[in-house]
Nucleic acid binder design. Sequence first.
DNA 1: CTGTCGATAATTGTCAACAATATTTTGGAA
DNA 2: TTCCAAAATATTGTTGACAATTATCGACAG
Lengths: 251, 251
Amino acid sequence: MNNHQWPVPEGEGVISAPPASSLRDENQPAGEVERLYLEIFDAVIDQRLRPGVKLTEAVLCDAFACSRGTVRAALAQLQHDKIVELQPNRGAFVAQPDIKETRDVFEARRMVEAAILDKLLSLPDLPDRLQQLWQMVRQERVAFERQDRVSWIRLSNAFHVQLVRLAENEVLTELMNSLCSRTSLIIALYDKPGCSACSFDEHEQILQHLSRGDRQAAQQAMRQHLQDCEQRMHFADRNVPDPWTMFHRQL
Amino acid sequence: MNNHQWPVPEGEGVISAPPASSLRDENQPAGEVERLYLEIFDAVIDQRLRPGVKLTEAVLCDAFACSRGTVRAALAQLQHDKIVELQPNRGAFVAQPDIKETRDVFEARRMVEAAILDKLLSLPDLPDRLQQLWQMVRQERVAFERQDRVSWIRLSNAFHVQLVRLAENEVLTELMNSLCSRTSLIIALYDKPGCSACSFDEHEQILQHLSRGDRQAAQQAMRQHLQDCEQRMHFADRNVPDPWTMFHRQL
DNA sequence: CTGTCGATAATTGTCAACAATATTTTGGAA
DNA sequence: TTCCAAAATATTGTTGACAATTATCGACAG
């Protein structure tokens, strides 16, 4: 299992094997549709499925050996998470967030993550809880140094999600999970590989401020981090995935 | 259309006709499943479907004259929004948020709504935009005075959603929509009808502080408003919807 | 009377076929 | 050749049926 061949927009070749663990919680009993959901979700986040690619139902249910009913259920859920766009009678496409959505997502993240930092700083044992995050930042550095872009994006998201998880609020955790996955799509569309600076460095700084209990500095660092990320997006010469698909989406 | 007979836990009689407009945005082309989604969603928010009630697929597709595939798709989406709980091979139940979830939802709301007030206060033409909200508060008062509990809850939610909408951020709006609907479920479960004080009064105060541009007071009023609402919840003698259902949910 | 086991009934999970819609190809005329 | 129309193909939307699982009821032993 798990070594299917994804539909590729152009001739990008066979994708590498998907990673074992997902960003999302695996608390549910996980039926057939949940498996498909996670499979496609991961593929989009890892950019094995580029934004704008059409997800033909027949291809999917062939790739995963399941019926179209299952595929449709999974796609419906993904649409609800804004990971795919479901056009009536046309089919499902990996979502292509526009400039407005980019602005909204990052603004929401700045708001929510600032509030979360505030709460975290009121925890008495915060430095202890931060241990695992230091570990995570080290992994980020490794992924960055060996140019492993997929792992880097995945770990970068995981950092923010794990940070929220420390607040022990399920609602906020799921919320951040959703925002992070949408951010991944945005990065896939608008970020230039060359420009993706050392964000693990900024993560490290945030951790330092947090463990020192410096509220002001932590807030500022997080705000700057998110703002930097947003401003790395280039909307002019966008990362067009596939002229054929673009044409048929009337853009 | 729209005058179906909902499955009722005990002998609560026939439900009243559902209201015309929904809380949720109706931007999508609205397929068959979207209709079902909204129908069930509204019924839950309006408490015509009480928490814990089982939603049998056959009953639903009989009530709305559609196939089970449609019903399953709608239920899957509702599960994703935490409006219904989908137990594998057991069926769908209207969600019953527990104490922890209640805490988390209200904490998330305090965080997000505080941040939103901050943003709103930076808008130059805020007082103009607040016009429609004054109108809304008046409606709340009317609903409260004629003891129309359903309209009151609906309008109370709408107030918060509309307030967020002024910030012109789609992501935040949808987020608040989700949080408000979950709040409705919580109120249905844990609030005593008698105790639901004059919250429209608190809404009015928030508006006053906002139109005066008094950041400190507005923040405090919103915080207090949400905290009051949360503390009106009584977890001891909970509003048990149906012993039969409760039993089979292993509680 | 209570609790356990087994058969029956009801409900969900999955699938395959059909109808509706959209896309591609084909054919012909300017 | 280029453009337009219409048949042909492909894909999605919907439905109904069947298999798998679970809930209900009744018989029976303790």
